[in-house]
Design a protein around this nucleic acid. Structure first.
Lengths: 322, 322
DNA sequence: TTGTAAGCGTTATCAT
DNA sequence: ATGATAACGCTTACAA
């Protein structure tokens, strides 16, 4: 690893001249500039980022934290983030929750985008400062001190719309398989569900609420439990696709046909949902990543409000609903 | 961001004492140690990694580079890498090809794992030095100077085994949809295919080789072309699942039933393959990531040979083969 | 246009 | 047991 000092010696100039050349400052003679550049490429010089950052806290790198390896749409989100950052001259560095604290606190990056439930609110509040803004995806932290901004799916209205659609189709007996109770997503989705039923004077007995954890298996198990009772609902609304797919599997194993005997809906529009023909709600993943990055850059420039940004979603009616 | 200097002042000790406490050195009095630790947690001190690295080039972080956002098995590989590194006290930092040069050359990391076709051999050779070893996944670079090690799927024997299986089932007229010609994977898979046919005295007319690029669409198009001729093969062996799925789609659109009229096989065992009941070859993803990380750590310790590490794969006979 | 020197937040050596 | 002090590789006033 050749360093600036050696380049300077080879070029017969001072270290600061090399630095000036490399940073494109104009106070360098044409001849010197070319000579330095020539030597740099000849010897394969590349700046040591640690040295750089040690001095000018301005790192131009953003960290993205995730950790649930089961959600296949991470890649699309990352692609959106990556594109936006690249367009703006920033580097993206991705890590899992395990290294998050190190990278977020070590001043290697200038901001972070979080799509992870395992980092605590307290931790996030402690790192999200004006000089290290944080964008939260699918999550909201209400704290005046913390420099956070949320980018979330606007679950409520689209869930209302879908449930209203189901009501209009004539469904009366509903079941609901929920995700993790404490997540914002689940709360809003469930609220849209119950509110719409209430509005239509359809009673929802809480015994038809089944607790899941967003994984396929939990949907499968919820459906298994449902099957034990003698009165299945006419339609099961699930808080995400994975659970819907699990539920369908359980029904089919028990000779309950979807949608003939029971209808099922999901949320997310994952690859599998499309494949299975699952009625669900489609979220703009790439766009959400792009937007999250854009908001973060705005925060870095001080031009951003802290109101949650709500992403619209759209219903995909497919064949799992009669 | 409070720094060591301020902690030192608050504790009424010198900066070096704080450093000693933080790095668990034993040359510090019990009372001092406790006082310093207390103040650190009280003021939320966290070391600045740039400062750290500026001094002691030993970073304990590994970078993983990928960039094809269409391959759904990245996450499993990352999980494997992440687990191995975490167990060994390393941090994982993931990036796409766009930032790869920065992170690999900036001395932020001590080694890299590459799963990306867009980084050139030349680039990789230029960074892979004894003090910055590189593990390549699904790719081999033969260069004595470069400190690289490959972790690859042992395509050949398993492909032979599968094709032999097909021959044993009585298939005689084969088609092959290849991936990108220059990739090692494609070359080995195709070699296993032709060699096995030759061994069984089955002639393979090169006109039944179709060029694809590993994407679903290219498989679809290859099948479309096949359909134009009047003699379809009895079985189409594809270099990966995506293309196999595309081909199946094309066949079904043209009322050619799989497997009744034509059999199809893939390679990878992706989520979709399982879903579609595609006969394919399963690669141990999590394990391959774990192993790649393990090999990298071994290189870092100087205990590793440079022979490619070959991962075994297994056939999954499913319903797309008659 | 170019160079000198101070400083970034750490670690490590060597006195004390 | 503790503290000066140099050093890491770079940037940036400021001086020449």
């Amino acid at each position: 690893m050749i360093k600036m000092k050696e380049i300077a010696e080879l070029a017969g100039v001072s270290i600061s001249t090399v630095s000036n050349v490399l940073n494109g400052r104009k106070n360098v003679g044409q001849a010197t500039r070319e000579r330095v550049l020539q030597i740099c490429s000849e010897y394969g010089y590349h700046p040591n980022l640690s040295g750089k950052k040690a001095k000018s806290a301005n790192s131009n790198t953003i960290v993205f934290v995730f950790s649930d390896f089961d959600r296949d749409f991470y890649l699309k989100i990352i692609e959106g983030i990556s594109d936006c950052l690249t367009e703006n001259g920033y580097d993206l560095m991705i890590c899992t929750n395990k290294s998050a604290a190190n990278f977020m606190r070590g001043s290697l990056a200038s901001g972070a985008i979080i799509l992870d439930g395992s980092l605590t609110d307290d931790f996030l509040i402690s790192v999200a400062k004006p000089d290290f803004p944080v964008v939260l995806m699918d999550r909201i932290i209400r704290n005046e001190q913390a420099e956070t901004k949320s980018v979330i799916v606007d679950n409520y209205p689209v869930m209302c719309e879908m449930v209203q659609g189901l009501v209009d189709k004539g469904f009366k007996r509903f079941g609901f398989i929920g995700g993790l109770d404490f997540t914002l997503d689940n709360q809003e989705r469930y609220a849209g569900f119950t509110d719409t039923l209430a509005k239509n004077n359809i009673e929802f007995d809480r015994k038809y609420y089944f607790h899941g954890n967003y994984r396929e298996k939990s949907g499968y198990q919820a459906a298994k439990i449902m099957l034990l009772s003698n009165d299945l609902p006419e339609v099961v609304v699930c808080a995400n696709d994975n659970m819907a797919i699990g539920a369908i599997k359980a029904f089919e194993e028990n000779k309950i046909r979807v949608p003939d005997d029971i209808s099922v809906t999901g949320f997310d529009d994952s690859v599998l949902a499309e494949m299975k023909g699952l009625t669900t709600i489609s979220i703009p993943r790439y766009e959400s990543g792009y937007l999250a990055a854009k908001e973060l850059l705005a925060m870095l420039e001080g031009t951003a409000n802290k109101e949650p940004f709500k992403l619209g979603a759209t219903i995909k009616w497919r064949k799992t609903v009669k």
